[in-house]
Amino acid sequence: MDHGASRLKGVYLITDTVIQQRYSHRQLAGFALEAGVHMIQYRDKVAGARQALEELRVISAMTRPSATRFIINDRADLAIAGGTDGVHVGQDDLPVSAARDVVGAGLIVGGTSSTLEEALQVERDGADYVALGHIFETTTKQKKYAPLGLEVLAEVCRAVSIPVIAIGGITLENAQWVRDAGADVIALCAPICMADEPVRAASRFVELFD
C-alpha cells in the first residue's frame, strides 16, 4: 500500500464539536497542522452529509500539502467524496472489511478495538492500523467498561503487526508510559480541543515524539 500507514507515528487529533463549540472542525484542523500533528480524524455524528462534505473538502485541501493525514470517522463514502486520506470505523460502524471494499487499497482504513481479540480481528479484516481504548479513565465518551490499562496495551502491541493507536485518557503525564508500552500513535481529543491554547497543547504532545 502506498499511503504509508505502516509508518504511522505521532499524535492523532480527533476533532469534536460536541464536547466544545469554541472551534469548528476546520479551526481545530488548522491548530493541528500548526503543531505538526500526524493524523487528524474528523468526527461528527450530528452534521448532515451535505454540510460534512463541504468541511471535509476544505480540510483536505489544507492537509494535502503537509505530511499530516486526514481521515473521517464512520463514513467511507465521504472519505472518498471529501478527498480525505481514509476512514476510521468503530465497532458499531461498517465492518473493516466492508469499509475496505468501499475505499479500495489506496486509502487508510482504521478500526477500533477494546480487547486483544477485537484488535486481532481488526488486523485480519485488513485494517491499516488498530485503535485500542480506552487506556485510562476518560470523560470524552461514556464507557461501559473499565479502562484497559498499560498491560493490555502492551499485549496488543506485541500481538499485532499493524500500528497501534492508543486512545482514552492520555495526558502529558502518562503519554510516555503509553509509548513505552509500544503504542505507535497517541490519540487525543479533549486535551487539545478543550485546551486554553490548543496549538500549544498539541505541540507539547508532538514534542514527545521528537
Binding site: G48, A49, Q51, L53, D77, I80, A81
Partner: peptide, 10 residues
C-alpha cells in the same frame, strides 16, 4: 440535508 446526487456520482 444528506449527500447530494453529484456526491454519490462522484
Amino acid at each position: 440535508e444528506g449527500l447530494a446526487p453529484d456526491g454519490v456520482k462522484h
